[in-house]
Amino acid sequence: MITQLQHLGQWTLKRFERLGRSHLFLLRVSSGSWGVLARPGLVIQQIFAVGVLSLPIILVAGLFVGMVLALQLYNTMVDFGAEQSLGPVVALSLVRELGPVVTALLFAGRAGSALAAEIGLMKATEQLSSMEMMAVDPLRRIVAPRLVGGLLSLPLLAALFSAVGISGGFFVATGLLGVDSNAYWSQMQANVDLFDDIANGVIKSVVFGMVVTWIAVFEGYDAAPTSEGVARATTRTVVNSSLAVLGLDFILTALMFGDNE
């Protein structure tokens, strides 16, 4: 009993230690990341690695999510004679929720795990250490460009996801289900607000981009320098960032959309 309590206490202390360390890490990275702006080449490389290489999965997923959404919602809404509202419902679901959240989850799986594994391996093979000894700060040279790259990539990916999804929904709605194409767009424009819906969706995806890349680079940088440690860091990245995205989504939704009439 006593030992179990001890374990619980140690476990709790360890959580707090990691929480504190990850925040200090973020602080140290962001204090050094302004220098990155002077070297856009490094950031561009990272946007390629996390953004461009995530494009296929994001586009395919967006297309299918939009199509399935239109199909499912149509079947429900046609019973109420509300199939004209298919456009706005598809658009709102994508722009407010599914776009940022699903993109962030896919991003955590595709880019976050790769980031954690890459940095973890660099640590395990002493590359980070050797950089330090070459008087190159790995936080600035390796971590900061990746953080900025992820931060910039996710909102663009989320926007593409939503746009492709809405288009996919459009094709299903008008081509397959016979919804009037003018109604699809005009109803959408009447109900989707530029600031309340689209801008808030973009804010969400910026926050998610920040959090997912932060968790990924921290887990990689903090990994035990062994192959087992790297594997664990990769798993932890996907699990923790997915949970963080879902939790933050609730908070952000409550904050931004809560005061709607």
Partner: peptide, 21 residues
Amino acid sequence: VGIFVALGFLALLMLAMKVSN
């Protein structure tokens, strides 16, 4: 990366112009 960023902004533009009010 140029193509990616252009596509991303195009998508944002589409969301703004075609989807929203």
